[in-house]
Design a binder for these strands. Sequence first.
DNA 1: AAATTTCCGTGGTAAATACCACAGAAAAGA
DNA 2: TCTTTTCTGTGGTATTTACCACGGAAATTT
Lengths: 217, 217
Amino acid sequence: MKNYFNLLSSVQIFKGINEPELSAMLECLGAKKVNAAKGSFLLLAGEKAENVGILLSGSLQIIKENNEGERLILAALEPGQIFAEALCCAGITESPVSVMSTAESEVLLLKFSRILQSCSNSCEFHQKLLGNMLRLLAEKNLLLQGRIDLLGKGSLRSKVMSYLDSFESQKMPIRIPLNREELADFLCVERSALSHELSRMKKDGLIDYRKNEFYIL
Amino acid sequence: MKNYFNLLSSVQIFKGINEPELSAMLECLGAKKVNAAKGSFLLLAGEKAENVGILLSGSLQIIKENNEGERLILAALEPGQIFAEALCCAGITESPVSVMSTAESEVLLLKFSRILQSCSNSCEFHQKLLGNMLRLLAEKNLLLQGRIDLLGKGSLRSKVMSYLDSFESQKMPIRIPLNREELADFLCVERSALSHELSRMKKDGLIDYRKNEFYIL
DNA sequence: AAATTTCCGTGGTAAATACCACAGAAAAGA
DNA sequence: TCTTTTCTGTGGTATTTACCACGGAAATTT
């Protein structure tokens, strides 16, 4: 497990916990490393999530199938990210989503019940762990809230402005990390409709842009 | 404080904690009851939230002002509901929202730092409290996620269907708790556009409804 | 460099939704 | 009961967005 220390120490859920403590904790938490072949599932919709997962290597997708059988990709996970934490914390008995490995992946599973209960060794870092967990959930909460604000905007134009405003703290050539198609997906609109609106906004003197460098005027 | 025991025991954050334990915990948590006059603010945008609030009586609104100075009401709280928990847990130093009392209100404030640290009395119910907190945040998380799914739907028709589907476990006359205007707000569309689409859906044989009783056909 | 692929803007049309106005139904009050 | 107010549906028009098709720019590959 030690070869993953660098990665694990960068995982938000273990923030502020250093190596010797971490090793003890992993023991406490019933950590189990599993390998997932490409195309295999770490969690199926309908199951109960008993473990919080940490992706060590490879890649995962969080997938939701609607009643028409269409697969919607809710998120693509990279190494270091965690999954199923909200399901565990909420005690959901029938997961609405599945987790699929999209490559040969290594995953660390932590028993959620052990996260909650202070372990028999009563290791002093449970508190830190719980604080981290709270912070993670709360941050995601605020992130989701922001996304709802944005999606609730009536017009495509205000969605774009909201999106750009979310970078407000930074200096002006705003370099957005999404290409047009990804931005359109994020704003839940058509790519070409987005392009149309962007050029209208440029014509109206609201913004300027070249590829993914934007300026609010 | 005792006169609020019935209310407090129904507050999710105290679920599973009975009266004698609760009294001790409130001490632990530095609970402080404050009265808020109508129109006064319990938290201002830009401040740091240090306390988790529980509304005992009266009513509160969570308000966000955008850069055009328009006030958007994010939520209206009723007695028994809590607020500022996500801000506290995420350690946000500049709240993006304000909390205003819209009536003569009584509020219980709990120091967040005390929630996190196991208190000197090391009362055994901190663990339960933390578990409740995790659950609350996670449930809200999933709720928000569902709302994003819905808002991301392209058409008004699929928004309506998503909304109705969310009641799927229940038997058929689905009684929705919102009137047309509120439903329109929730779906982020115009009320009259919603009415138009509803009657089209009825004409197309997808649904039937009378006032707020709906049937999926 | 040439060829291929991906990305992006644009025109035009169809469809969806917003917006306005109004009227009847239902609910609340007097 | 009568009045008043709120809620809901509907018609009509304006606006917005989706959708399709295409071509040029930029990046990638050969």
